[in-house]
C-alpha cells in the first residue's frame, strides 16, 4: 500500500504568515508539500466553521496561523481570534473532534524557517495519526440513501 499522504489545509493571515511562507520559498528552505494554503486578510476572519468545512472536504489536518500578538495589521484581529480559538478548541475537545489535528501558530513575515518547521512537524504528526477517518465517515453522506430517525 502506498504511504499515506496527509492532506493539510492552512488558513493563514495575509500580512504575516502568508508573507512568512513566501519567505520560506524564496529562501529555498525545503518543506513538505502536503499543505494547501488559503490566504485571509487577518486571523480575525478565519471563522471556525471554515475549519469544519476543511474536515468535511477531506482534510486530515489543519494549520491556522497569523501575526504574533501585538503585530496584527488591524491591531486586535488576532486577539479576538485567540479567544475564539481557545473556546473552539475546547468545544472540539468536548465533542471528540481530534484537537491534535488542528495546529495553531503565530508566524511572522520574517519567520520563514519557523513556517517550514510548523509544516514539517504537522505533516509528520498527521502522518503518524493517519487519515481522519472518524470525520470522513460522518461526512460520507450523501453516499447513504436514506436517513431514518
Amino acid at each position: 500500500m502506498a504511504e499515506f499522504e496527509p492532506k493539510i489545509v492552512a488558513f493563514v493571515c495575509n500580512w504575516c504568515t502568508y508573507a512568512g511562507a513566501d519567505l520560506t520559498g524564496t529562501s529555498r528552505i525545503k518543506y513538505a508539500s502536503n499543505v494547501r494554503i488559503i490566504r485571509f486578510p487577518c486571523t480575525g476572519r478565519i471563522d471556525y466553521m471554515l475549519l469544519l468545512k476543511a474536515f468535511d472536504e477531506g482534510a486530515d489536518g489543519i494549520i491556522v496561523s497569523g501575526c504574533h500578538p501585538n503585530d496584527c495589521h488591524y491591531t486586535s484581529g488576532n486577539f479576538h481570534a485567540r479567544r475564539r480559538w481557545i473556546m473552539f478548541r475546547s468545544l472540539c475537545d468536548f465533542t471528540g473532534i481530534d484537537t491534535e489535528r488542528i495546529k495553531f501558530s503565530w508566524v511572522s513575515a520574517a519567520e520563514g524557517a519557523k513556517w517550514a518547521e510548523i509544516v514539517n512537524t504537522t505533516v509528520a504528526s498527521i502522518r503518524e495519526l493517519g487519515p481522519y477517518t472518524d470525520y470522513k465517515k460522518v461526512a460520507k453522506y450523501p453516499e447513504k440513501e436514506v436517513i431514518h430517525g
Partner: peptide, 13 residues
C-alpha cells in the same frame, strides 16, 4: 415520533 419516516424519511436522496 410518528411512523411516517418509513415511507417519507426525514432525509432522502
Amino acid at each position: 415520533e410518528s411512523a411516517k419516516d418509513i415511507a417519507f424519511p426525514r432525509t432522502e436522496k
